[in-house]
Design a protein around this nucleic acid. Structure first.
Lengths: 110, 110
DNA sequence: AATATTAATCGTAATATTGCAATGAACTAA
DNA sequence: TTAGTTCATTGCAATATTACGATTAATATT
């Protein structure tokens, strides 16, 4: 059905999967890495930087914005995007807590 | 087109997005958390634990196995799954390196 | 051998995602 | 005003994902 049954999982599990999902496309990873890398805010050059069509980039940016990971600022005809550092930090904590689990090797059968 | 143009991204970006994608469903997050939590390997009780049909769980397990994050061991009629700790660690490094980027707040316009 | 148990696979329906051409909206420059 | 720039939105086609019933394969039990 292509639809996750979110109601049967915890809020934490759903939150983790939502964050992970947005990182589940290399274009969005590339956009975020670019936003981290450059010293100033990026404006329109993401299209030439990434190599996808403008509507496609716009759509990816929308998803990143929806989750609060980036902010957009209108500057004349162009829009300036950058990482929302506060929300990025919150996301990071959630994700790292999930990733950083330790295995009790005690009775590992595999 | 529903298909990521992986050839235009770096190996690292593709790797990150592949790992992230597998965490992009709450059932797989739940399966992994359960495998971490229990002291011994889970076998068939994931179906009752998670609450999805057996073929669905089996499919999710297959994806986790494909990425190397879990291992499966046949034990009679049942199969015993557990975290592949070595690969989990490798994945963790890749993901944390991506998540742990710092923002140069210098000329942040937003 | 006959039956039961467990999990994988197949087939299929429903929905989601990705990508882009075309268009629209907002501003700028001439 | 007119034309240009930049980015968002719409609409659509192609593909992917999710879920599960039905079936199959493999082993256990009787």
């Amino acid at each position: 059905m292509g639809l996750a049954k979110t109601e049967m999982f915890t809020d934490q599990q759903n939150e983790i999967s939502l964050f992970a999902k947005v990182f589940g496309h290399p274009a969005r990873v590339a956009i975020l890495q670019h936003l981290f890398k450059i010293e100033r805010c990026v404006c329109g050059d993401l299209v030439s930087e990434i190599g996808l069509a403008q509507p496609t980039i716009s759509q990816h940016l929308k998803e990143l914005k929806y989750l609060g990971l980036i902010k957009g600022n209108v500057e004349g005809t162009s829009v300036c995007y950058c990482i929302d550092s506060e929300n990025w930090l919150k996301m990071k904590e959630v994700m790292i807590q999930f990733l950083d689990q330790d295995i009790s090797e005690k009775e590992n059968c595999c």
